[in-house]
């Protein structure tokens, strides 16, 4: 990525009393990129997001958005940010439309046409004049997204955005995020506890634990590993296990339920398959087992609960 980052977090630290909530966190977010933000409960995700939008002040370190320092040039830098922080809480006694008018006035120059366009984009046309009181959680999420993109920000922060959306809504939402990232070059930060969701939605994942950034990597990266675990379903497990061990002492092999788990390189897998057949063992299935993000996440964070 040789582009300039839209958002730079530089050595961000937040202390409350003697407790360090965020510890020297640095992160760059680039245009057109969707970054997933993961971490176990209480790792500091929300605190980090709050510092990025100026709700909380960092004890030390800097937040730079679109080239402006958040502390020194607040209005300039925040004008490029659209966000949902935690739940999209709206004024329930007003209609969705009135809520949008309210936020449009805070943003400055936003036309009636733009509001209409956004309402259409998030698919709320038919209910926009109803009071928010009567909205389902999914509709509130849509309205939350609408107020976040009203001013076409360069940087979008979404906290648990798919919470309450139905599967079709989630899919639609994912497509929309991909679209604004690709077409408008918006940089998106999504925090979610649905790891499979993050995997589908994001280009890059940042994992935070106990206030420290412990990993940043791209989502496709995990496919590149040469060695993999293969699951073999065979007619005679014990015999097959013996064959593998006779073949090579060092191969990791384990019997798991009705399958053999063998850690191999791709070429070796084909080799072993042939050996099985030659020895009269029927092979029903060979499944290359890819580590899911969840497994990786649990490995990295030591199995703490994710929310």
């Amino acid at each position: 990525m040789n582009e300039q980052p839209v958002v730079q977090l530089k050595n961000l630290t937040k202390k409350i009393g003697s407790k360090t909530i965020i510890d020297d966190l640095s992160l760059d977010l680039y245009p057109g990129q969707v970054t997933g933000f993961l971490g176990p409960n209480g790792a500091g995700k929300t605190t980090t997001i709050r510092m990025m939008v100026g709700l909380m002040k960092a004890t030390s370190g800097e937040v730079i958005i679109d080239g402006y320092h958040l502390n020194k040039n607040y209005t300039k830098s925040i004008s490029q940010v659209g966000a949902i922080v935690e739940n999209p809480e709206m004024y329930k006694f007003m209609s969705g439309y009135q809520n949008l008018v309210h936020f449009a006035r805070l943003q400055g120059n936003i036309s009636k046409e733009r509001i209409k366009e956004v309402v259409k984009q998030v698919g709320l046309e038919s209910r926009i004049h109803d009071k928010v009181q009567a909205y389902s959680l999914g509709m509130r999420q849509r309205l939350g997204l609408a107020q976040a993109i009203l001013h076409k920000p360069k940087f979008l922060i979404l906290d648990e955005p798919t919470n309450g959306l139905d599967p079709a809504g989630i899919r639609e939402f994912r497509m929309y995020l991909r679209k604004i990232a690709a077409e408008d070059g918006v940089s998106v930060l999504v925090s979610s506890h649905l790891l499979s969701e993050i995997e589908l939605m994001c280009d890059r994942i940042a994992i935070i634990q106990q206030g420290k950034l412990i990993s940043i990597r791209s989502v496709q990266g995990s496919d590149q590993d040469k060695r993999k675990v293969f699951l073999f379903k065979v007619s005679d497990k014990e015999k097959a296990w013996q064959i593998v061990k006779d073949n090579d002492e060092d191969i990791e092999v384990e019997i798991m339920d009705d399958r053999l788990m063998i850690n191999l390189e791709k070429e070796q897998a084909a080799q072993i398959n042939r050996t099985f057949i030659e020895n009269g063992i029927d092979v029903y299935e060979i499944i290359p087992h890819k580590k899911t993000l969840e497994e990786e996440f649990l490995e990295m964070t030591g199995g703490e609960q994710i929310v």
């Binding site: 709700l55 607040y74 209005t75 925040i78």
Partner: peptide, 14 residues
């Protein structure tokens, strides 16, 4: 109380 303070203050207005 409503939680709207978050959406109210993250705007280009001091």
């Amino acid at each position: 109380t409503w939680g709207t303070i978050k959406l109210l203050t993250i705007r280009p207005v001091k």
